[in-house]
Nucleic acid binder design. Structure first.
Length: 300
RNA sequence: GGGCAGUUACCAGAGUGGCCAAAUGGGGCUGACUGUAACUCAGCUGUCUUUCGACUUCGGUGGUUCGAAUCCAUCACUGCCCA
């Protein structure tokens, strides 16, 4: 039986350090499950593995897309499954490490096949929003997919709009694409959750932000100012710097404060998501022996 | 020593007699999440209670009043100005 070891946890908890140890132990590359590290050029702000770390162990799905290029959890699922079948040809273990909740779920449970929304449809829906507001989008969804209308958060503009986009583009209700069923995988998944005391985690996040600035986060972000509206850069650590450049914040100290704060919020959201997954077995990141013996015990 | 201003929940900060457990923002906590998800969105945040509601709060103390965060006296502390 093949095993996929999934190491997950909130930002700043210490996933990278552990992943290097595990990669070595099980002689397997690291598959990064990180929706932002996948982009090239934003290594500092996304705390991607450093170059020396990457020469030590192979890291997949890090820095492989250009900023502004489209990528998604669904695509990640496809790409990783393909990669996994390669790895499993000569490995019993594969290792995936990251904090992007939906990316991890996509690989572990699969996602339904929801069509990619083309630019024209996207624009049409944006126009409707422009003219009729959220109310207009809501009414449209009620008309096109009353099923989904009942379940969706009617204040969540982004999800509302996406559902409408899919309905309009395909001519079918958005909910008709949802099966909510877990896809079978031909390998076993071992989910390891990493967590620390909240206070300790927040402290680590705070000091890491300072470190990022010392490494040149500001300069890194600055060179991509022209791409600030792309999804890849709608990211903690970058958006705050762009807001500063646009005059929203008047000094760098405030920028740092906001980045720390938003990172903490993000970590919290991650924990909320992970908490409901009963398959995750939780460890303190320093408990390497415990983690390894747990993995080995899963073999049977 | 004199003058003025102030002291409100974790923080900032409204409230100047009843509609006040007290606006608003931040922080914090909890949660939702199926394709741009480090996104986007929601709830809670004095105590007890599932709710209704009850109880204790607005620097301390003592008053005025049917009723006080709000008015008066006094004490303490803080800031600014004059010495």
């Amino acid at each position: 039986m093949k095993h996929l070891i999934v190491v997950l946890g909130p930002t700043g908890v210490g996933k990278t350090a552990l992943s290097l140890t595990l990669a070595k132990k099980f002689s397997t590359p690291v598959i990064s499950a990180d929706s932002r590290q996948i982009y090239k050029g934003i290594e500092i702000g996304t705390a991607a593995a450093t170059e020396s770390e990457r020469t030590l162990t192979e890291h997949l799905f890090v820095g492989i897309k250009e900023l502004g290029e489209y990528y998604s959890a669904g695509q990640f699922e496809q790409d990783v499954l393909e990669k996994l079948s390669n790895i499993f040809e000569h490995n019993d273990y594969a290792l995936m490490v990251g904090g992007s909740m939906m990316y991890i779920d996509a690989v572990c449970n699969g996602m339904d096949n929801i069509p990619y929304v083309d630019g024209e449809t996207r624009k049409n829906v944006a126009d409707i929003f422009q003219k009729q507001g959220l109310e207009g989008i809501r009414n449209l969804l009620q008309l096109l997919d009353s099923e989904h209308y009942k379940r969706i958060d009617l204040k969540n503009k982004q999800r509302l709009m996406h559902a409408v986009e899919v309905c309009l583009m395909t001519g079918k209700p958005y909910s008709s694409f949802l099966s909510a069923s877990k896809k079978a995988r031909n390998f076993r998944i071992i989910k390891i959750g990493l967590n620390r005391e909240r206070e300790e985690l927040y402290e680590r996040i705070n000091t890491r932000v300072e470190e990022m600035f010392a490494l040149g986060l500001f300069e890194e972000a600055k060179q991509f100012y022209h791409l600030k509206d792309t999804n890849a850069l709608n990211t903690v650590g970058y958006k705050e710097i762009y807001q500063y450049m646009d005059g929203v914040y008047s000094d760098i100290e405030t920028v740092k404060k906001m980045i720390k704060q938003n990172s903490r919020h993000y970590a919290k959201r991650q924990l909320t998501w992970f908490r409901r997954d009963s398959e995750i077995v939780w460890f303190h990141p320093d408990n390497i022996n415990g983690i390894i013996s747990y993995i080995e015990s899963c073999e049977k």
